[in-house]
Amino acid sequence: MVKSKGTKAADLVIAFICVLLIIACLLPMLNIAARSLSSTEAIIRGEVLLWPKGWNLTAYRLVLSDSRYTWSLGWTAILTVICTFVSMTMTTLCAYPLIYDKLKGRRLFNTLILFTMYFNAGTIPHYLLYKDLGLLNNPLVLIIPNSLSVFYMIIMRTFFYSIPDSLRESAEIDGASPVRILFSIYLPLSKPVIATLSLFYAVGRWNGFSDALMYMNDRRWHPIQLLLYNILKSITSIEVATQEGFASAPGLSDTLQSATVVFATVPILLVYPWLQKYFISGATLGALKD
């Protein structure tokens, strides 16, 4: 198809818009990286845009030598691994039996599970339950209560449905038990969906902070996002105080805060490019659910 000049010009305009979008996505990251590597004076003078001025690594050295950060990063990493494993086990245990159409009570189980997607008891009832169960300030509260997402379970079930029934039936005729079929047929064929959902769970845990904010007062068990939140709040309150006319209080410097943000972001940015295709296939699977 021969393209007219007008069409070509329009294509270039669209490409230009996309370039603007790319810049908009990358700009905040470049800015924060630049600030984390600059000297405090250069930042205060308003000289730092996208390239560090007065190059220094002090902030990174400070972050790495502060045991609060390193412990919190390590703890969040461990927590993420544990949560992902628990969540994937729960999701599989829930999704797999539900694909058996001969399973008695399946409709009831489905209704029970789906109902929780639309009606939620709310924050306070959950809080009081955890209190009664002794989960408050217990690290388990960051692992168990949100270990199973109905939405992800549906994605997994949809994937299981796409595996032909005939495979399962022939294995049944050969005398394989449901557990055996799960491990030797379904799980090996479901690697893409397992990868996708593991990533979603892992990112959710890495990024989660509200459960820790509400149910965990013990600072030792604070995940990195909550630590970051507390730092940010202390900084903005200083800024607010300054703006309201109080003398500027000496607080955590912008460089230090930027370095902390970089530390919490880098793990995501590192895994993202490699695992992108899984993320996308997961989003599409979610869209096609019925």
Binding site: L27, P28, I32, W206, F209, E239, Q257
Partner: peptide, 21 residues
């Protein structure tokens, strides 16, 4: 690829980016 990426940043991180920006 670039446009999908911000989805994976938490609101805390975005808030950190925004405060600096």
């Amino acid at each position: 690829s670039v446009a999908y990426m911000p989805h994976f940043l938490s609101w805390i991180i975005i808030s950190g980016l925004a405060v600096q920006l």
